[in-house]
Amino acid sequence: MAEQVALSRTQVCGILREELFQGDAFHQSDTHIFIIMGASGDLAKKKIYPTIWWLFRDGLLPENTFIVGYARSRLTVADIRKQSEPFFKATPEEKLKLEDFFARNSYVAGQYDDAASYQRLNSHMNALHLGSQANRLFYLALPPTVYEAVTKNIHESCMSQIGWNRIIVEKPFGRDLQSSDRLSNHISSLFREDQIYRIDHYLGKEMVQNLMVLRFANRIFGPIWNRDNIACVILTFKEPFGTEGRGGYFDEFGIIRDVMQNHLLQMLCLVAMEKPASTNSDDVRDEKVKVLKCISEVQANNVVLGQYVGNPDGEGEATKGYLDDPTVPRGSTTATFAAVVLYVENERWDGVPFILRCGKALNERKAEVRLQFHDVAGDIFHQQCKRNELVIRVQPNEAVYTKMMTKKPGMFFNPEESELDLTYGNRYKNVKLPDAYERLILDVFCGSQMHFVRSDELREAWRIFTPLLHQIELEKPKPIPYIYGSRGPTEADELMKRVGFQYEGTYKWVNP
């Protein structure tokens, strides 16, 4: 592979701008107003304001973009700056750019259920340069409990009458099928589907988006991507930290609602779906819905739930269990780990287990898709061969690698495990991989909904998990304890083995 010439960040961002501006969906010269509902909250200060700053800094926003914060707290732009700027990672050389960014910011205080507050917000936006005809993007960085009041008031008082209007809704989209349907029906009564952007930030990850290209742009994968060759698929999300004093919020939802029903299920769809007619948003989402419709409700015998306990040999936070978090209700049975087996009941995947695993306070930070292939028929190497695996590593250190057998150097035919490896950090030294939120917010500006969740996708996802969630809430089974920093409950490994996964433990990928 030829040595790549190092590029400056300015040059890299210039390439990104060229890609972005050559499309006809990006209205570079139009006025846009980006409204952050819930501007005083954690999500706004840690993710949304920093993301908008990065896009502005790199010249990736339309030229005439204004940012308006809205929340109940009586704040000023200076207050917003004070709480969000520490997350910007701005350099001293960017000081003038930073001043320009905050000059485009404003803030309006108001209630979430008060019509007069929204009329005041609308008047404020109209007073901005060309504000009355601007395109408006409303980001709901809010708890779902206020979605209905907020969307109703936005629709009645704050819509642009000339430009387009788009609304970005953060997960969780309800707690179960019934609450999700209620919320979807409410929002759909106010906005068209092409105006609604239900954001799952995992769909903005580079390697998640790469799944489609790997599958449908490489001839070698087509013939082997089926039940005849693939023994099982494992989708993993692991965090090495616990709730760390923020367990009160987590306890309301648990690990299945927080990660599995959305992030992991979306990745499953991209692995299992048929080739779409095109890369058009609805063509892709149509195929994802077909996959979900082929999955039956989760069966309790295919589920393992766990909850982390303190590690007596650990240090600091590792010595504390979930129930030691003062914000967690006493005696909570909320799971911090889950392993679930699903089956896609169609011709391509009949009988292939899709194993979804996620948890907190585990032994490493990792998100990946792992396809394990069947054993080689007619073994001539005296059971020395391990199964081939194709691994798409989402985070950290984005990579695609194939675990395969090669001859060990020497005189004899002794096979050993090795890999074919594409590590993004080595291959793409001159490429700026956008943060997931950067990519998705740019998608909203461009009107691309491919990486957002459609209402029928959402409904099918909740259909699969709601009976299990209701059973857990009714019966309150005690989750299996696992030690902070471990791989999780051993019962999860036993479940995976029972459905056909072979864990060798003899080879570990190392970032080159």
Rank of each mutant, 00 (worst) to 15 (best):
R104T: 04
T10C: 09
L235K: 02
P143T: 03
C158T: 11
E19W: 06
F87Y: 13
I187H: 07
L190K: 11
L140H: 07
H27N: 13
F102N: 03
Y197I: 01
L130W: 11
Y147K: 00
Y70I: 10
D181V: 08
Y70C: 11
E18Y: 08
T145P: 06
G38H: 02
N105F: 05
L121V: 08
L137K: 08
F87L: 14
S189C: 15
V146P: 06
V208C: 14
Y197T: 03
E239F: 02
Q119M: 09
I220E: 01
L137T: 09
D181G: 12
G245F: 09
Q195G: 06
R227F: 05
S157Q: 12
T76S: 09
G242T: 11
T76M: 09
R74S: 12
L7V: 13
N126L: 14
Y49M: 14
L43N: 02
G242I: 04
L20M: 13
I220S: 02
F250S: 02
N135W: 06
L214H: 09
M207T: 04
L43P: 01
I220R: 00
A44Q: 00
C158H: 08
K238G: 05
E93L: 06
S73D: 01
K95V: 01
K152E: 12
E94D: 10
K95P: 03
I33F: 11
R175E: 13
Y70F: 13
F21A: 07
Q28C: 12
T31Q: 04
F101G: 01
T65S: 08
N185H: 10
E239K: 00
L96R: 08
Y202N: 01
A115H: 13
L137R: 02
L121I: 09
V146I: 14
C158N: 06
K171P: 00
D200Q: 00
M125R: 02
F241L: 06
L183M: 08
I80K: 05
I35G: 03
L20V: 07
Y249M: 03
G14K: 15
Q209T: 14
I162G: 06
G14W: 15
S40Y: 04
L16S: 14
K205R: 02
S160E: 11
A141Y: 03
R219P: 07
I256R: 02
I220P: 06
W164D: 04
L203G: 01
A71Q: 04
I80R: 03
N229Y: 05
S179E: 04
